[in-house]
Simulated scan of single mutants.
Amino acid sequence: MKQIQGVIFDLAGTVVDFGSFAPTTIFVEAFRRGFDFDISLQEARVPMGLGKWEHIKAVGELPEVAQRWQTQFGREMDESDIDTIYDTFMPLQIAKVGEHADLIPGTEDVVAGLRDQGIKIGACTGYPRAVLDALLPSLNHNGFTPDYVVATDDLAAGGRPAAFMALKNMLELGLGDVTTCIKVDDSLPGISEGLNAGMWTVALLLSGNEAGLTQEQFETSDETTLAAAREKAQKVFSTSGAHYEIDTIADLPKVVADINLRLAKGEKP
């Protein structure tokens, strides 16, 4: 009887950095330092989940950003501009990513429960390897130690929304059946990654990029406020194809249990 064998987690907004503030705030700073050009935190959030060079490019292609860039510089953003912003972003992100290494509540208990079931724990991220290497010691110290983790620039084939990082996790974890794997993510590219790999997918509504809440806001807001944030995220994920939507990683065990029942009936993602 088939049962879940592996869960592959995104990092920021999924298991660490409630609200995914580490990358987004640094994007804002990198645009400002690189070109004295302002983008909003919300604009920085739009392409979250992509590799960081691709993320900068996607922000520059947002119509309102592109128009402001044209007005300020009299030309379109080009690849050399993206390189400049990326080269500004990288040292800032490496220096500050450890400041956003608190685990999202529930992570340790959920991962421990998965391990008790013999489930392998994988991870992948839109962070480049240099940033991931700066983050991992803090993650490990705080209690998240995946069996394998892939950075967006580890593979020549590229990152999200393609399936390569998820499939690399499967290969390294020795998992032979995509239908027994779950991809958990707080971004559209991350959900597409899991779907492209043929896995079950779980979208996180309140801990990640789309709601953009701090942990304090999540823990102190009334249900009306949380419902509005949840609805905002649900609109983003409405066409994502995600099999499940939950608030945070703390709600994952019930999803695993449900998928196990579906697998036992012969269902596939």
Results as ranks from 00 to 15, higher is better:
residue 214 T to H: 01
residue 52 K to Q: 06
residue 252 L to D: 11
residue 185 D to R: 02
residue 7 V to S: 10
residue 144 F to G: 01
residue 80 S to K: 15
residue 178 V to H: 13
residue 16 V to R: 01
residue 156 A to D: 14
residue 265 K to S: 14
residue 96 K to H: 14
residue 216 E to K: 11
residue 242 A to E: 10
residue 188 L to K: 08
residue 164 F to A: 14
residue 182 I to G: 08
residue 63 P to K: 10
residue 189 P to K: 07
residue 196 N to Q: 07
residue 268 K to Y: 07
residue 160 R to F: 00
residue 62 L to P: 05
residue 49 G to T: 03
residue 258 D to F: 01
residue 176 G to A: 13
residue 96 K to C: 03
residue 158 G to T: 08
residue 16 V to E: 02
residue 43 E to V: 06
residue 33 R to E: 15
residue 202 V to D: 09
residue 35 F to S: 05
residue 145 T to M: 12
residue 103 L to A: 12
residue 143 G to D: 10
residue 254 K to M: 13
residue 181 C to I: 12
residue 101 A to F: 02
residue 176 G to Y: 06
residue 125 T to V: 05
residue 160 R to K: 11
residue 182 I to F: 04
residue 16 V to W: 01
residue 41 L to C: 01
residue 78 D to H: 10
residue 2 K to G: 04
residue 261 L to Y: 02
residue 72 Q to M: 10
residue 49 G to C: 04
residue 143 G to W: 03
residue 127 Y to D: 07
residue 100 H to Y: 15
residue 113 G to E: 10
residue 266 G to D: 11
residue 45 R to M: 10
residue 144 F to Q: 02
residue 201 T to M: 08
residue 253 P to V: 13
residue 206 L to M: 04
residue 65 V to P: 00
residue 133 D to G: 02
residue 71 T to R: 13
residue 151 A to G: 04
residue 255 V to E: 08
residue 263 L to P: 03
residue 27 F to G: 02
residue 68 R to H: 12
residue 50 L to P: 00
residue 164 F to L: 02
residue 101 A to S: 15
residue 28 V to P: 03
residue 180 T to N: 12
residue 149 V to D: 03
residue 256 V to F: 05
residue 73 F to H: 13
residue 39 I to Q: 02
residue 42 Q to Y: 05
residue 65 V to M: 05
residue 103 L to T: 14
residue 188 L to F: 04
residue 64 E to T: 15
residue 243 H to F: 09
residue 28 V to L: 10
residue 148 Y to M: 04
residue 244 Y to D: 13
residue 129 R to V: 07
residue 221 S to P: 01
residue 238 S to Q: 14
residue 18 F to P: 00
residue 134 A to E: 08
residue 100 H to D: 08
residue 144 F to M: 01
residue 87 D to C: 06
